[in-house]
């Protein structure tokens, strides 16, 4: 069976000051060609000013079956949010 190249995840910064966002993936044999493929696929309409490509195999993802243990414990830490604190209205700049 004819083979395909490795998979790379593509991140695009749409303009200066914004962070890179994941937009999809490309297949490519190496980093340089991966960048070219990302450019030719995902920035044909002036969508980006900067590109990252990351070998998909290097991404370490959290396990969806452990969502609860990973993320639920943050739920009741309401004191981390500014609205948790009652400050009288006449106190300014706080």
């Amino acid at each position: 069976m004819p083979k395909d190249w490795p998979l790379w995840e593509v991140f695009v910064r749409s303009k200066g000051g914004l962070s890179h966002r994941h937009v999809g993936s490309v297949h490519a044999p190496d980093p340089e060609i991966a960048l070219r493929h990302a450019r030719d696929t995902y920035t044909r309409r002036m969508e980006g000013v900067s590109l990252w490509v990351v070998p998909s195999a290097s991404i370490i993802a959290s396990d969806p079956s452990e969502d609860a243990a990973m993320f639920d414990p943050a739920e009741d830490k309401i004191y981390r949010h500014p609205t948790f604190y009652n400050i009288p209205d006449h106190i300014k700049h706080i």
Partner: peptide, 14 residues
């Protein structure tokens, strides 16, 4: 299929 050699070549280079 006829371009399989291109993909193989780039892999070999990498």
């Amino acid at each position: 299929e006829q371009n399989a050699w291109v993909r193989e070549a780039a892999d070999a280079y990498a």
